[in-house]
């Protein structure tokens, strides 16, 4: 994994919640391990409160981790001084979920996209160069350069997200963290933006960390997938492996719970419906974090946190479970009778 562009090891982040009863340490990220290769897309899946947005913010250095390491191209950005840090900032950028809140309504679209250059003045030193690049960026994301003078509220949601993407591209990054980039958009517009992201990746070779709760979207965009639950990555592997042969019960339940658009199916679909909701991160369960909702839980799950284990046939497919689902033995029927 030495060639990985971004390599995250044992990343931990706690928040202190003042006024909380009893334990006031909220463990948002618990020993996160992941890596991203050049030009690929890592899908990050999980429900709200699982820590995926905290992870994104930590990777962008909007939060400081408590322990663990982040290596980007072999360099730890948290050890950098101002000038190197500024250079590093160029290489990792972010697109935010809400295309309305993430653009300053008092600026024009052109001002928003060119805002990064006010800090990175040496990137495009002359006004003419900035103008040219601005037009280029607008064209790249499918907007008319002549619209640069409009203010954000004159654009539709999908166009606003394109402005957000253009802004993230303004510094020519190597990695873009996309935090739910299409979940605020309508379906038909969502498809346009997903196509744009795909097209940009092929043209520019940029790597994506694609955060989403929508499994069908992640399945469409991701090369590899990491599934998060309560601050931990419970399963990771190639998108195909994770989606077709989920090993962790949570992954299986998540996929089973999301509705399928399959009108041709003749047999009714078997479904796992989990009980309850995700426990509070202020008071996570002992041992395995998923055990309170898991139908496979045994005594050991309450006492011993499972170690990451690779699947027998694929060392890249890792999950944290004492009783992983084995596709050969655990057929859906068995899942169905597990209760």
């Amino acid at each position: 994994m030495s060639e990985a562009l971004l390599d995250v090891r044992e990343l931990t982040k706690n928040f202190h919640v003042p006024g909380a009863k009893g334990n006031n340490t909220l463990c948002a990220l618990d020993k996160i391990n992941l890596y991203v290769n050049r030009g690929e897309t890592l899908g990050l899946v999980g429900e709200s409160g699982c820590g995926k947005s905290t992870l994104a913010r930590t990777l962008l250095m909007l939060e400081t981790p408590d322990s663990g390491s982040v290596r980007f191209d072999g360099v730890d950005p948290f050890g950098l001084k101002s000038r190197e840090l500024l250079a590093w900032r160029r290489r990792v950028q972010m697109v935010f979920q809400d295309p309305f809140a993430s653009l300053n309504a008092r600026m024009t679209a052109g001002e928003i996209v060119s805002e990064p250059w006010a800090t990175h003045r040496d990137l495009y030193p002359t006004k003419a160069a900035r103008q040219a690049r601005l037009s280029e960026l607008f064209t790249l994301v499918g907007l008319r350069p002549s619209d640069a003078g409009k203010s954000p509220q004159e654009f539709s949601g999908g166009q606003r997200q394109r402005i957000g993407i253009a802004r993230a591209l303004a510094l020519n990054p190597d990695v873009i963290v996309l935090d739910e980039p299409v979940s605020a958009l309508d379906l038909s517009v969502q498809a346009q933006v997903l196509n744009l992201l795909n097209d940009l990746q092929q043209r520019l070779g940029v790597a994506y960390i694609f955060i989403s709760h929508d499994l069908s979207v992640v399945r469409h965009v991701a090369d590899r997938v990491a599934v998060m639950y309560l601050g931990r990555i419970v399963e990771t592997g190639t998108a195909e492996e994770v989606f077709d042969r989920p090993s962790h019960p949570y992954t299986a339940a998540l996929m089973s719970a999301s509705p399928h658009l399959d009108v041709t199916a003749t047999a009714p679909r078997q479904r796992i419906i989990l009980e309850g909701e995700m426990p509070s991160p202020l008071d996570p369960p002992s041992g395995c974090r998923f055990r309170t909702r898991c139908w496979k839980a045994q005594d050991i799950c309450a006492t011993l946190a499972p170690e990451p284990r690779a699947a027998l046939d694929n060392p890249e497919h890792i999950s944290e479970c004492h009783f992983p689902i084995e596709p050969t033995r655990d057929e859906p029927e068995q899942l169905a009778h597990a209760s």
Binding site: A253, P268, R269, Q270, R271, I272, I273, L274, E275, G276, R291, T292, R293, C294, W295, A297, L335, A336, H337, A338, S339
Partner: peptide
């Protein structure tokens, strides 16, 4: 914890 497994059937 148990799991409710159930069938989505066409009504």
């Amino acid at each position: 914890m148990s799991t409710i497994t159930q069938t989505v059937s066409e009504s």
